[in-house]
Design a protein around this nucleic acid. Structure first.
Length: 561
RNA sequence: UGGGAGAUCGUCCAAUGGUAGGACAGCGGCCUUUGGAGCCGUAUAUCCAGGUUCGAAUCCUGGUUUCCCAGCCA
């Protein structure tokens, strides 16, 4: 990789770790983990967390685990497990065999619960969910004790064992921690530890019908794996006292939890719930729709792991809730692809040009540089002939002052080929331009003239006889507002969906060298942007996705006018 | 007086008592066989009010304001 090191200042988590190493808090160990719930596909927000956790381990010579928080069988599926494993790998991280599941610890967690019951720190409650909610109190008023709070250890043990044995229906009983119903922190008002769920678990099958709540599983899982720094997002800040309480009552190893602000991006949404809704309601074609902020979507769109990692490095880590401009992500994919993508000529919206003084039937193979940023990328040959396609937007019958492409009487350069002058404009009966008659200067072969005369415009082109047809999918932001979550009164975020987020071009002409395109390979379509071959490609039809446009100063000039 | 956490250029992130700096975005220019890339330059910020100090983004006091929490979700 030629990507230069992104050097950012130490973030606050690295500073904490440095201090911990100074004080020998964990004996110099650094052990993190990325703990997703397998209830959806990973998105770029997760990438931030993955890069953070695995990056920290790398930086401090420690380890990072991958652990699935699979405590709720009613929402979790193996499809998600597989995609998550694949995505973390794709990003370029390795858990070195330390792939764990919270469900690995179900027996241990059950034993922990038994201890808490025996010590009088947990009890079986038989209130309904609704009653529990009412007893919890409100943000400003304390809760009140459940009538079952005083059950004896024996009775609790008996009931809990029968919960486990499957004697009760869902909702009949739960196991609760006995803490403080008047706590200002609602998480401490006797939180539920276990609930009955009669559902098949993707790993433990029907072995269990009671499942630990996340709050009773997560901290202990970190403890069992001897995680040193349990990094999580801000909303778990007020769960930390609860995790600390469990660890203390259980007398087990105590990791240190550190919270950071999750990633938000303009023009997209970043919650699994909302992404799932987009998929379920058919607003996108699937989790890997190239407009989705999922890793599978970005990958299909043509984003590289390197670009995403560089992005994650650059945005930093802090506790300040922030929204990153999507332009920053685009900057990093352009940077990566500019250095690595082969250049190729593609005409999106073809306009036929006949070069009247070029011999009929003649074909020349023109030498073309594959990547001016990378001398090792070599050269290729592109066939040139009497009839070519150029971009319709590259011709203007009455050009404005700043337009320096083709126009009647004007000379432009055909990249890697010749200078041409437009002599005649052919129109159909509606006045629509359908063809241009031009003449070329044979002395300018290769795109350079002996007299060194100044040529303002350089156009890309494709030989009519050699052109390959393709479908090209142009993507725009999925939402038409930077903050789609802020929907108008009475509407939800789907009201902000951009109806024009996908535009399909069916008549794209490509130079023949792309015949060898393989899935996922990125090209720069000269002067237009970066594109990659899509999985929808068939033997009959090439399909390309536009990853991102090139920066376009002409477009900017136009919008200013 | 419910609990917890934040507030620095337009957007992110730095600066931990000593010249407020970087990136993206913007603007201007140079260069160019991609109106790409690259290069150079440039404007813009410490939530507010007091206080401590030779000196405050940083420390103290008091405000303002934003976010999170009342799932048997994670």
């Amino acid at each position: 990789m030629t990507t230069p090191e992104i050097t950012s200042a130490a973030n606050f988590i690295e500073k904490i770790i440095e201090e911990d190493n100074q004080s020998n808090k964990f004996g110099g160990r650094v052990h993190t983990r990325f703990p997703p719930e397998p209830n959806g596909y990973l998105h770029i927000g997760h990438a931030k967390s993955i890069c953070l956790n695995f990056g920290l381990a790398e930086k401090f010579g420690g380890m990072a685990n991958l652990r699935f928080d699979d405590t709720n069988p009613s929402k979790e599926e193996v499809e998600y497990v597989d995609s998550i494993i694949n995505d973390v790998h794709w990003l370029g991280f390795d858990w070195e065999g330390r792939l764990f599941y919270a469900s690995d610890y179900f027996q241990q967690l059950y034993d922990f619960a038994l201890k808490l019951i025996k010590d009088g720190n947990a009890y079986v409650d038989s209130l309904t969910a609704e009653q529990i909610r009412q007893h919890r109190g409100t943000l400003t008023e304390p809760g009140k004790a459940s009538p079952y709070r005083g059950r004896s250890v024996e009775e609790n043990l008996n009931l809990f064992e029968r919960m486990k044995a499957g004697e009760f229906k869902e909702g009949e009983h739960v196991l609760r921690a006995k803490i403080d119903m008047a706590a200002g922190n609602l998480n401490m008002r006797d939180p539920v530890m276990y609930r009955v769920i009669h559902a098949e678990h993707h790993r433990t099958g029907n072995q269990w019908c009671i499942y630990p709540m996340y709050d009773f599983a997560h901290g202990q899982s970190d403890s069992l794996e001897r995680i040193t720094h349990s990094i999580c997002t801000l909303e778990f800040e007020d769960h930390r006292p609860l995790y600390d309480w469990f660890v203390e009552k259980l007398g087990i190893y105590a990791p240190q939890q550190i919270e950071f602000a999750r990633l938000n991006l303009t023009y997209t949404v970043m919650s699994k719930r909302k992404l799932l809704l987009l998929v379920r309601e058919g607003h996108v074609t699937g989790w890997d729709d190239p407009r989705m902020p999922t890793l599978s979507g970005l990958r299909r769109r043509g984003y590289t792991a390197q670009a995403i990692r560089d992005f994650a490095d650059r945005i930093g880590v802090a506790k300040n809730e922030s929204v990153i401009d999507i332009a920053l992500l685009e900057y990093f994919i352009r940077q990566d692809l500019n250095r690595h993508a082969q250049r190729v000529m593609a005409v999106m919206n073809p306009l036929k040009v006949v070069i009247t003084n070029y011999p009929e039937g003649m074909v020349e193979e023109m030498d073309a540089v594959n990547n001016p940023e990378d001398p090792t990328a070599g050269m290729r040959q592109v066939p040139f002939s009497r009839e070519i396609y150029i971009e319709r937007d590259d011709f203007m019958e009455e050009p404005s002052k700043k337009f320096f492409r083709l126009a009647p009487g004007r000379e432009v350069r055909l990249m890697h080929a010749y200078y041409i002058i437009c002599n005649e404009v052919i129109k159909d009966e509606h006045g629509e331009v359908i063809e241009l008659h031009c003449s070329y200067d044979p002395a300018t072969r290769g795109g350079d003239s002996p007299d060194k005369r100044k040529i303002q415009g350089t156009l890309h082109w494709v030989s009519v006889a050699h052109a390959m047809a393709a479908e090209v999918r142009l993507y725009d932001q999925l939402f038409n507002t930077p903050t789609p979550d802020e929907a108008a009164e009475g509407q939800d975020f789907t009201a902000n969906l951009n109806p024009n987020s996908l535009q399909i071009l069916n008549n794209v002409k490509l130079e023949p060298s792309v015949a060898h395109a393989s899935l996922g390979t990125s090209y720069q379509f000269l002067r237009q942007g970066y594109f990659c071959l899509d999985a929808d490609t068939t033997a009959e039809k090439l399909v390309f996705n536009r990853t991102v446009t090139l920066r376009d100063t002409w477009a900017k000039i136009q919008t200013k006018q």
